[in-house]
Design a protein around this nucleic acid. Sequence first.
DNA 1: AATTAATTCAACCGCACGGTT
DNA 2: GAACCGTGCGGTTGAATTAAT
Length: 270
Amino acid sequence: MGRQPCCDKQGVKKGPWTAEEDTKLINFILTNGQCCWRAVPKLAGLRRCGKSCRLRWTNYLRPDLKRGLLSEDEEQLVIDLHARLGNRWSKIASRLPGRTDNEIKNHWNTHIKKKLIKRGIDPVTHEPLQKVHQDTKTTSSPEEHSSLSEVNNDSLPQMETCTNAIGSSEENSSSSPHENCSTLSSDDEKLLSYLLGDDEPPLVDTLSWELPNDAQNFNRDIGVFTSWDDCATWLFDCQDFGVQDFGFDRFNEFEMSVLDTLEASNIQQK
DNA sequence: AATTAATTCAACCGCACGGTT
DNA sequence: GAACCGTGCGGTTGAATTAAT
């Protein structure tokens, strides 16, 4: 018996989500939480496949998502992490609260890649393009490194390595390229070690976080919520829908706020 | 103002992995 | 151990938007 398709292809809607569909999905998840995505469309009254619902929720509807372009700091962190993790977007995204793997991947492909190339950095290897060019000159054709043609040759003599290629770190040129390649704080290093699987989970400096007053289920020792209720409350407090001062038991107000936001954006679109 | 080209990003697809039976 | 299932991941596509001509 072959693998069952993720959804019944017939009668399943594809393409952009409507505000009505968003509302249904939000209503369902706020009421029931995230469970068995395959069942969500049926239970929520959506003609979508579960996969599509999950993607829509995680990439767009989740209340803890940030909006807008990545800040310089975030961009720099993405570059640092990419240098060590490669295209493991979900791992990278897990280091940037409120950002999704899809968002980071898109931003990498549309913005960061170009910036790095412009500055003479190979976005794949994070090595200076000149070096890559020399290394590969004898083994591969020029077409395989088409990005080289986009390099501004003026920048090559002052080329810097990956992590200080963008932003204010450009000024820190006194140290060696290798040193420059590691602008991570010790916390970042710990986290990276953990992400790479060779270390214990790093402790979070939770004392500096603004936690909900009633977050009794937050374990400050291990830096996690032991209760979904508190976790959700905290996330919702952080999100950008304009609701600030409520607890988990006031879901209806949050829901109304979400619906208002959706309606407003719908009107704007029209 | 109309057309074309370039860019952006939400969404889709196929595959891989881990858990369960 | 094999088969199945649910989910997550990364690569890719294509519609919408913006910029250039």
